[in-house]
Design a protein around this nucleic acid. Structure first.
Lengths: 241, 241
DNA sequence: TTACTTATGGTTTATTTGACTACAAGTATA
DNA sequence: TATACTTGTAGTCAAATAAACCATAAGTAA
């Protein structure tokens, strides 16, 4: 019941007028990167004529709530996690984007480290699934457009600020990081050059730990040093390949 | 009368419900670059308790109108120009941003070549003015925040796509272009290096024309070659200094 | 012991930057 | 007419960076 409020399945007229904004919603691309696969969370609509179709999770905005807070609330309800990395993409305002009335939606994307949580907490398997970013299917309403814009926004962001770390566990290897960049940006990079370039930035600190349980030479584990980032980089960083 | 609709001075409840969205507006940073000065257009609010204060031009969205079309309509009414370069920045959704009710606004910025038009067309001198971007004053509501976000968005854009040309006349000198970049990005660059770097991109074509009426050696005039841009650059261009 | 896999560290060359210098082509002025 | 002055344009040179490689290390598996 509570959950279904955060899927676009109920029209705002079913809710008390004063509770939520009646012509604006939030939709959110939740990205994750697990076992080398870059994915997005889709949810299935439970009601109405588009029942069974897949889309991005979304929700309404309460009348006295900041839109960023609405997006955070949506995320916490979906994942059980607080303090998720969240960024607004833009507003989507085609008058025909939503068939039941004029509703403008504000697109967000979130980056989560899926080690920490179980998406099943709020959903049954048939209600939510992760799909690979490069194998996106047809989505409901204008959600493909929202997804594309979110991905593009993330791609730009990741080149100028150390954003990708939000998709990795606290400790990671350089090759995991490289794999992440390759998948987000849809490029191939040279292992050795990636290594050199990233280490030169001094954003990573090693603490002597190594990978465990791998059947080959164990790689060093690094973690992202946010403090040096804020010191070093007034001018943002540039990460083009 | 018609004009005042595009200043935020009338509450939506004064308009028929079916005409416009009642909790979403548009606000727009209109940038220009004239005689080497990078400026933004401000308008003065004509009614209400904040009468006399300055802000960004804004307007309501009609019920069956795309938000981008609403922004274009606003621009055309303000400037008399069609086909202005326009880009959405993001939505601003602090519940307290607008004192008379919950109104979310969508920020846009426009780039105009002020050679072509006279802002006085729609305004008296006391109703609108251009201010230098680096001398911005306090604005009404959250308009300083919208302005800052717009400027930042433009700064990023200008580094990865040949966007700045929209602020220049069809034909311009390399030093005008350089001055433009310096002002938008708030940096200083070396004349000779700028020249080399920009010409190497092959985005500019010369047609033999030169400056006229200047009291020093006349510079070559260039124009932006959009077709080669689209050919060359799948990967966007990189213009860092 | 050998093959295999991934990690990590270097080398080499071409390209790009950044800081400068020099000169060209005009106008202003004395 | 000569000289200074202003902006435009071209080139130099050293340092930094990027791209394409190669070599070796450190481990597992057979």
């Amino acid at each position: 019941m509570k959950k279904s409020k955060y899927l676009i399945s109920k029209s705002p007229s079913e809710l008390k007028k004063s509770e939520v904004m009646d012509s604006i919603t939030i939709d959110c691309c939740i990205f994750s990167f697990e076992k080398g696969e870059f994915k997005v969370l889709l949810v299935q609509h439970g009601e109405g004529i588009r029942k069974g179709e897949w889309g991005l999770p979304g929700g309404w905005i309460e009348y006295d709530e900041h839109i960023d807070d609405a997006a955070n609330r949506l995320l916490e309800n979906l994942t059980g996690l607080k303090d998720i990395y969240l960024e607004q993409v833009k507003a989507f305002g085609d008058p025909n984007r939503f068939p039941l009335g004029r509703v403008i939606t504000i697109g967000y994307y979130a980056l989560i480290n899926s080690e920490n949580f179980d998406i099943k907490a709020g959903f049954t398997a048939s209600e939510a699934k992760w799909v690979k970013v490069n194998e996106m299917q047809n989505l409901i309403y204008d959600h493909n457009e929202i997804f594309e814009a979110s991905l593009k926004h993330l791609q730009e962001k990741v080149k100028r600020a150390p954003t990708g770390f939000n998709l990795l566990p606290d400790k990671f290897t350089l090759l995991q990081l490289m794999e992440l960049y390759q998948q987000i940006l849809d490029i191939e990079v040279d292992k050795s050059n990636f290594r050199r370039k990233f280490l030169k930035m001094k954003l990573l600190k090693e603490n002597g730990d190594k990978q465990e349980g791998v059947s080959h030479r164990a790689a060093k584990l690094y973690s992202f040093d946010e403090s040096t980032y804020h010191q070093l980089t007034k001018k943002g960083f540039n990460f083009e390949f």
